[in-house]
Simulated assay, not measured.
Amino acid sequence: MRIDIEDLHVAYAGRTVVAGAHLVAAEGEITGLVGPNGSGKSTLLRAVYRHLRPTAGRVLLAGTDLRELSPVRSARHVAALPQERGSDFELSVREVVAMGRTPYKRAFAGEDAADRDIVSRALADVGMDAHAGRRFTALSGGERQRVLLARAFAQDPDVLVLDEPTNHLDIRHQVDLLALLRSQRRTTLVSLHDLNAAASVCDRLHVLHAGAVVASGPPRDVLTPELMAEVFGVRAVVVDHPLTGDALIAFDHRAPASPQAPVSGSRPATVRCVR
């Protein structure tokens, strides 16, 4: 299913954080959100998975406003891995993942064979099947991250919304996760701080700056040295990755870019949206 975000405005803690965002997450593609801290990525995603109500604009799922769907119907289509993650589940790993089946169950209904198969497959996908009986609270941060991702997979959604899913993961599990997302070819809207990971895994990127989408397009078209300087305030060059051929951004870690990023809310002069 396709997600269309139209003229989205979202306020949080009394201020407008997302101001007039337009973007598309195409069916079966991985669409990335990148931008500096405070640019509105997490707030935009919270509106998509209905944690925040937009002050204006719409989020459309296959042409239907998500707000017109009941919470249960919405949860059957959209699963989220937010940044604010519960850590106080007094449940086993398997019980946490089984919570993803809730939208499909009547009140007080137990697991059936199909549920058990889906939960087992989700645990195997994230490499946590051997830990199914452990307490969730006994896990490391990276292990919890993988369990909560398995819960989202167990929801069997049409759309995945992932907010910094590689946080807390070591490099091996980051690579495994990004490869898994690509192999599933599920409509995915994901925010990532790691621009090289975004360039590798995403079919299309939307760059947020001061709550607005300032550039959109394939990673190689979007992640230019000019954008790195104007939006992120860093010096960088873009080369071919020697192993994959993807765009690889090499940063100058010794000095920031000059001049710094433009005034809040303005579109970088050298950046063009590729629709």
Rank of each mutant, 00 (worst) to 15 (best):
L81W: 01
P218N: 01
A269T: 13
A80S: 14
G245H: 11
R135K: 12
Q145R: 11
L177N: 02
K105Q: 15
L60W: 06
R146A: 03
E226T: 11
P259E: 04
A47W: 03
L60C: 08
G141A: 10
R53M: 07
R254N: 10
Q83Y: 02
F108D: 07
L69D: 09
S140N: 10
V78A: 04
R182C: 03
L223T: 13
V237D: 15
P268F: 08
S42V: 05
R67H: 08
S266W: 07
M228F: 11
R58V: 00
A79G: 05
N167E: 07
V147L: 03
V126H: 07
G63D: 10
L91I: 02
Q174A: 05
R144T: 08
S216R: 00
V222S: 06
G133I: 01
R50W: 05
A154S: 07
Y49R: 08
A21F: 06
R151Q: 15
G28E: 05
D203N: 13
P165C: 10
T16K: 13
R67L: 08
P157A: 07
D252G: 10
R275G: 06
A79P: 06
R53D: 09
L189V: 05
Q155N: 12
G40N: 10
I30P: 04
T16Y: 00
R50D: 09
A154R: 07
D246V: 09
D170E: 13
R58D: 01
V207P: 03
A107R: 13
R46N: 15
D156F: 00
D65C: 05
R272V: 14
M228D: 09
D176F: 00
R267N: 09
G32S: 05
L169Q: 15
V93A: 00
D203Q: 08
S39K: 07
R94K: 02
S264P: 14
A113Y: 04
A269R: 15
V119F: 00
G141T: 12
G38I: 13
T43V: 15
G14A: 08
A25Q: 10
V175W: 02
R101H: 12
E230Q: 15
V213R: 02
L180H: 06
P157E: 08
V213L: 02
R116P: 04
K105T: 14
D194A: 06
V48D: 03
A13M: 08
D129S: 11
E143M: 06
A21M: 09
D117C: 02
N37G: 14
G20N: 14
S70L: 11
V237Y: 04
F251Q: 07
Y12N: 10
Q83M: 05
A210T: 14
V119L: 00
Q184C: 00
E111V: 01
R144Y: 04
G38C: 11
R101D: 12
R53E: 13
A229D: 08
I171P: 04
A124P: 10
Y104S: 13
K105C: 12
H168N: 15
E226P: 02
G265K: 10
P36M: 13
H22F: 08
H51T: 13
P219V: 13
R116D: 14
